[in-house]
Amino acid sequence: MSELVVKGLTKKFGGLIAVNDVSFSVKSGEILGLIGPNGAGKTTVFNCLTGFLKADGGSVEFNGRSIYNCSPNAICALGVARTFQVVQVLQGMSALENVMVGAYLRHSRTAASRRRALEALERVGMSRFADMRAVNLTLPAKKRLEVAMCLATDPQVLMLDESMAGLTPTEIHDASSMICELRDAGMALIVVEHVMEAIMPIADRVMVLDSGIKIAEGLPAEIVRDPRVVSAYLGDKYAKRVKC
C-alpha cells in the first residue's frame, strides 16, 4: 500500500504564486482527477512533485519518505512516474527502445529490459508498433507510448498530464479503460484532464485548482454541483448538462 502525501506545496515565479499552499494525498487503487482552468497551476504541481521544478515551500512524502525537491531520476527510481502535457518521446529511437530506457531502471541487462519493455507495450496495446520510430507515430500512439515508458519503470504512482487531450471519443474510451485497469492493478493515479466526459466517470476523487489555489475537493458528483467550481471553471452549461 503506497501513499503520496502533499502538504502546503507552494511555487512562485517571481511575483506570481503559481501554486499556493496546496495539500492533497493519493493512495494505491485510486484515481485523483486534477482539473481547473488554463494557468491554474496543474502542470506546475506535477513539475514540483516530480522534481522538474524546485518548489518554494511545503512537503511531499511518498510512503513516509520525503521526496521534496529531489532530482527527477531519484523520484522516478522511488516509484513516481509522470507523462508530459506536450507529448515527449525519444523521437529518433524505436518505440521499443523508448520503453527499454524506462525498463533499464529495474532491469540492468538488455534481454530482461527488452522483455519488460515488450510487456509494457503489450499492456497499452502498442505491440505492433514496437519497431516503428517514435517520431513516425500518430499522436494517440505517442501518448500511449509515453504511458508504456512510465509503466516500464514499475511506478506505484503514475501522473498523467492531459493524456487524453486531442483524442477522438473512441480513443478516449480506450484510454479511460486503460487508466481504470491500472488503478485496478493497484496503482495510484493523478490525472490532469480538461475533457470532463473522460475524467468524471473514472475519477474516485476530484480536486479543483484555480489561480494556484485549491478551491474544492470531493467526489465527482459533488464537484460538478459545487458553485465555486462551476463559476471558476465548468460554467453553467456544463452544470445544466449534468443535471439533465
Binding site: S71, P72, N73, C76, A81, V101, G102
Partner: peptide
C-alpha cells in the same frame, strides 16, 4: 528531460 523522468 524525458530521460531523467525515466530514472536516468
Amino acid at each position: 528531460d524525458v530521460a531523467s523522468g525515466l530514472g536516468v
